[in-house]
Simulated scan of single mutants.
Amino acid sequence: MEIIILPDPNAVARTAADIIQARLEKGRTVLGLATGSTPLGTYEELIRRHCDAGLSFADAEAFTLDEYLGLPPDHPESYRSVIRREFTDNVDLRDTAVHSIDGQAKDPEAEATRFDTAIQAAGGVDIQILGIGTDGHIGFNEPMSSLASRTRIKTLTKQTRLDNARFFPSLDDVPYHVLTQGLGTIREARHLLLIGLGQAKARAVAAAAEGPVTAACPASALQLHPHATVLIDTPAASQLEQTDYYRYAHANKPAWQAY
């Protein structure tokens, strides 16, 4: 796990965009896209590079991480709608190449299997963008999720519903259930790119990076991955114990070594 501490969210967004751009420039790329506030700066930077510098997504394909169960696909807060509004509709990524989980599937378990199969058929995800929740969740893998889990139905914690209530008219409108890529599914991506911003994420970042690998902190599963990059701003790094080493390692990274 490579941990890179940067001064502010703008620097995090630029570095994340650098990593994604470098992969896009190699040719066909399969992206794993997270929603939520954390990756917004990265998406805005990628959109800017597309508009101002011609960065192309024409050869890319994308899979979203999760979806609320029961929301129609055109609901403004369905993640199918959100990822298009906030990112993919603003670049040259074909809409048919953006794959979302169907939150209204009549058979959610079959839909979960279909989605995992579709990722595999596409050749797997090259870069999976991840945020981290205050309790260490990634995707909608709440604490105590199996580290080997596949895409499946999950029940949201009370805290996650409270955190997401700001996007809905009221807490009562926030669904209780979701379909989410599992930790096992996520870990099959070739490169995991986790972004953490702000003091509120500091405890979760420390647990994920320096604590034990445990279902109590789902993001700690990144410790088992051969290519995981953690981009965090200074406040999010405030509870890490090895910050001097992380900064030293990044400052002395060989020029030939890619992210």
Results as ranks from 00 to 15, higher is better:
Pro7His: 13
Ala16Arg: 07
Ala16His: 02
Gln21Ser: 13
Gly27Lys: 11
Gly27Met: 08
Val30Ile: 09
Gly36Ser: 06
Ser37Ala: 13
Pro39Asp: 00
Pro39Val: 00
Tyr43Ser: 05
Tyr43Leu: 01
Tyr43Ala: 00
Leu46Asn: 07
Ile47Leu: 14
Leu55Lys: 06
Phe57Ser: 04
Asp59Tyr: 05
Asp59Gln: 14
Glu61Ser: 10
Ala62Cys: 12
Leu65Met: 13
Leu65Trp: 04
Leu69Cys: 01
Gly70Phe: 08
Leu71Ile: 06
Pro72Asn: 12
Asp74Ala: 14
Val82Asp: 00
Arg85Asn: 14
Thr88Gln: 05
Ser100Ala: 13
Glu109Val: 13
Gln120Tyr: 09
Asp126Gly: 05
Asp126Asn: 09
Gly131Ser: 11
Gly133Asn: 02
Ser149Trp: 02
Thr151Gln: 02
Lys154Met: 08
Leu156Thr: 01
Lys158Ile: 14
Phe167Leu: 08
Phe168Ile: 03
Ser170Phe: 13
Ser170Tyr: 10
Thr180Asp: 03
Gln181Asp: 08
Gln181Val: 10
Arg187Tyr: 11
Glu188Phe: 06
Leu192Val: 03
Leu194Asn: 06
Leu194Lys: 08
Lys201Ile: 04
Ala202Trp: 00
Val213Thr: 14
Val213Asp: 12
Leu224His: 14
Val230Arg: 02
Pro235Tyr: 06
Pro235Val: 02
Glu241Trp: 12
Gln242Cys: 05
Thr243Phe: 08
Ala249Gly: 15
Ala249Lys: 13
Ala249Asp: 15
Ala251His: 14
Pro254Ser: 08
